[in-house]
Design a protein around this nucleic acid. Structure first.
Length: 704
DNA sequence: AGCACGCCGACT
DNA sequence: GTCGGCGTGCTC
């Protein structure tokens, strides 16, 4: 691997007029908000507009005439309404730039009206959206939908009215001095450096009395030091529980100018924060994966917490991971990039190996981890856990809460025939039957209730529970540890915090509550079950789940790996995660698996996919690009929806990324152009030919 | 998407 | 001769 493998990150966008200076603009009246500052036409007659459309063939700029009566108001970045297809039908779009003349042959239609005086799309965000969409084979409009919240007239009026009043002093002195390490990191970030940090374990107490993970305090210090340098910081965090912790840490430190962008906010709140970000004041913007597109003023750094969490991958086309968007943005804007986590992702490990990201080597404090290896010292089972684990739990309960991490939610993941012992299969779809709660069994694939189930082998109709879900674990612990509170936290009933009193907290991975003062003990069960998940990245995921759980222990608490063995468990127990990741990455390099290489999946009708793959060979065959398949997509696959589809997987070196994306995107555009006719021409009753679908860097593309 | 353009078979 | 079938392609 070489540093050149990131050369696919575009240095510049083709479209857009961001280069034109805004200096010729007349001085704005004193009462207008600085969020209105943007380039005006200044006599130029043509406006370049990106239309709001999901259609790939419309994903380019359209020229419109600047009407006399709008010339004074119109600005780059404004949302406008324009005639499209005919003078009656109108479409929405964004003004991307102005020009003297148009290269379009026909007569230009005029812009119909301006939706809002606020230029919502800054040149920087436009450049980012264009580059990110190009890299992912998608439309810029799809990125802008994530980047720009829906307009709220009331919020906007309020914002513009308040703009006359002088902004509050933005150079707030922090309530506590920033720690020297964080200040040093921030100083490097604002010069454009890219750093990776493994965070310290255990919760810490804020001056407000609230407990948060030590990582949150570290990120708060770094973000505040970036802000103190007069720059904005964007902090991307996977979920609202992480965002809450960071927000608490920032508040306790007296941070000013903090904005929050997350999925739980109303659109009005989101639009309000968005307008403040646009305001020309440096901010600390914290939020979910979409926050990476926030219109930050003077962006100094993007901070990403726990980038291995799958929720940072956008589920909507073009499926761009926040990490990738951040890489492009940092490259384009010269901002720094900070990856922090308890367990590094394979992607960040790759970036450190090629020297693109610098490793912060100072070893963090880590919870003491012990391993009860059943294969070395077989132990007696009196209930759900081996005796050694039960002893650890009892010891912890003497002084505080104990966390027990389990693999599966629900009651019992598996059921078997009570008579012959065969695995119970759903009578409708053949899927495995599990118990969601005690006594109610249903198919884990189709959800059908297993009320009238009969065994296909012996005809018996008694279902027996096998395996231990979180609910059944709670039941067993209530029996085994009488007199103690047993609390449950899982995906359906997440619990954000627990107090410092003794209690057993049973949680599924990722749903562990934060304990005041930290857990006395963290017990990790079901390692072999988690590692056996049919997932190429099971090892990496397990290390992340385990490290995040271990980080919830008190500084003098203990983490017990209660079972399992093998290299991944060893890496966790000995704390040599980076070494394991390193060798894993070498293996993937040899096997050509991501993230050592990139992948794209191409799905559609057989002829469509063939045409798309042909584009990879014309006009010349791209070196470093390999095609697997196409293979039929199983009819049961939700992607198929009854139609007969095939899928090919394209593997390529990072340096080939822009070529591959450009060519596959070209095939998609010509396919879409012909799609309407195919649709119309289809015989009645025949399945609708699905559109060609393109997906880059799909994490699960090689999973069964 | 949705609509106009355009090029071959059956018709008042 | 022309009406209209639907494949093709464009939308500033």
């Amino acid at each position: 691997m070489s540093a050149g493998e990131l050369s696919d990150v575009p240095a510049d966008a083709e479209h857009g007029e961001s280069a034109a200076p805004a200096t010729e603009e007349p001085a704005a009246p004193a009462s207008t908000c600085s969020c209105l500052d943007a380039e005006a036409p200044n006599g130029r007659a043509v406006a370049e507009v990106l239309l709001d459309s999901a259609l790939p063939q419309l994903d380019h700029l359209f020229d419109y005439a600047v009407p006399e009566e709008l010339a004074g108001e119109l600005r780059v970045g404004q949302r406008v309404r324009v005639p499209f297809r005919n003078q009656q039908r109108k479409a929405f779009g964004y003004v991307i730039g102005f020009a003297e003349t148009s290269s379009f042959g026909g007569e230009l239609s005029p812009i119909a009206d301006i939706v809002s005086p606020v230029p919502q799309l800054t040149p920087e965000v436009w450049r980012l959206a264009r580059a990110v969409a190009d890299r992912a084979g998608g439309s810029a409009g799809d990125i802008l939908r994530l980047a720009i919240p829906g307009r709220q007239v009331r919020v906007e009026k309020q914002h513009l009215a308040a703009a006359g009043t002088p902004p509050e002093a933005s150079a707030h002195a922090p309530a506590e001095p920033l720690d020297a390490d964080s200040a040093a990191i921030a100083a490097r970030l604002v010069t454009g450096e890219r750093l990776a940090l493994t965070a310290t374990h255990s919760p810490e107490r804020l001056s407000t009395g609230e407990w948060v993970g030590a990582w949150a305090i570290r990120l708060a210090h770094v973000a505040m030091a970036v802000h103190a340098a007069g720059k904005s910081a964007i902090v991307v965090l996977p979920d609202y529980r992480d965002q809450d912790q960071l927000q608490s840490a920032l508040a306790a430190l007296g941070a000013a100018d903090v904005l929050r962008v997350d999925a739980r906010q109303s659109n009005a709140e989101r639009y309000g924060s968005f307008l403040q970000a646009l305001d020309g004041v440096a901010r600390i913007i914290i939020g979910n994966r979409s926050a990476v597109y926030a219109p930050a003023h003077e962006l100094g750094a993007i901070l990403i917490w726990d980038d291995g969490d799958p929720v940072l991958a956008e589920p909507l086309a073009p499926y761009v991971h926040a990490r990738d968007a951040a890489l492009v943005r940092a490259e384009q804007s010269g901002a720094g990039l900070f990856f922090a986590a308890h367990a590094r992702s394979a992607e960040v490990e790759r970036l450190t190996l090629i020297g693109y990201v610098q490793d912060q080597v100072n070893p963090p404090r880590r919870t003491r981890v012990i391993h009860a290896d059943q294969s070395i010292a077989p132990d007696a089972f009196a209930g759900r856990v081996p005796d050694f684990a039960a002893k650890t739990i009892r010891e912890g309960l003497r002084t505080g809460p104990v966390l027990v991490q389990v693999a599966t939610p629900g009651y019992a993941p598996v059921s078997v025939c009570g008579d012959c012992g065969d695995l119970a299969r759903c009578t409708a779809c053949g899927g495995p039957i599990g118990f969601r709660t005690a006594g109610t069994a249903a198919c884990r694939w189709c959800g059908q209730h297993a009320g009238g189930w009969a065994c296909a082998g012996c005809g018996g109709n008694r279902l027996a529970e096998r395996g231990m879900g979180s609910a059944r674990t709670v039941e067993q612990f209530e029996r085994q540890f009488r007199g103690f509170r047993v609390l449950l936290s899982d995906g359906d009933h997440p619990r954000e915090r627990v107090d410092a009193r003794p209690a057993i907290v049973v949680a599924t991975r990722g749903a562990e509550p934060l304990a005041a003062g930290g857990y006395r003990a963290v017990v990790l069960l079901d390692a072999e079950r988690l590692l056996s998940l049919e997932n190429l990245r099971a090892g990496e995921d397990c290390l992340r789940w385990w490290e995040n759980a271990a980080a919830l222990a008190a500084p003098d608490g203990v983490c017990l790996m209660a079972s399992g063995g093998g290299p991944v468990v060893q890496a966790f127990v000995t704390g040599r995660i980076d070494e394991w990741l390193h060798s894993e990455l070498r293996d993937r390099q040899a096997l050509r698996y991501p993230p050592a290489v990139r992948v794209a999946s191409v799905t559609g009708g057989s002829a469509q996919v063939d045409r798309a793959l042909a584009a990879l060979r014309t006009p010349d065959t791209l070196a470093g690009v390999e095609v697997l398949g196409p293979t039929p997509v199983a009819a049961s696959d939700p992607a198929a929806r009854g139609a007969k589809l095939v899928r090919a997987i394209v593997r390529f070196e990072y340096a080939r990324g822009s070529d591959v994306a450009k060519r596959l995107r070209g095939a998609l555009v010509s396919d879409a152009a012909g799609a309407s006719s195919r649709q119309k021409g289809r015989a009645p009753g025949r399945a609708v030919p699905e559109a060609l679908r393109l997906r880059f860097d799909d994490r699960g593309v090689f999973d069964g």
